[in-house]
Amino acid sequence: MHELSIVMGIVKIAEDETAKVKENAVAKIELEIGQLAGVELDALNFVWESAVKDSVLEHALKTIIEIPGKAICADCDREFYLNNIFDSCPNCNSNFKGIIQGKELRVKSLEVI
């Protein structure tokens, strides 16, 4: 379950950023997670509580902003939304595409106290 590694990465970022501004805890954290990023939100939420224990994130309110998948077709230039990484172009049916959105895995902001 790589979601645990992901949450530990988030904890590390939060610890570093909080220390940089000489604060002690995070009140709110906003995450941006693309729907094609390969992260199961259920699994992430499941490990969250035990992973943030004894860290600056222990009492933080977590908001997850889900970003839908979007690609641009390499054959006909059509921009389209996709639910699966293997969805083909709705216009010309090509599988050649560049994913332009939906792979995000970011800490957007922290509210520190």
Partner: peptide, 13 residues
């Protein structure tokens, strides 16, 4: 409360 807009990639390390 301070809001830090950090926009940092979680897998950056």
């Amino acid at each position: 409360h301070k809001v830090l807009e950090i926009e940092q990639d979680i897998l950056q390390n």
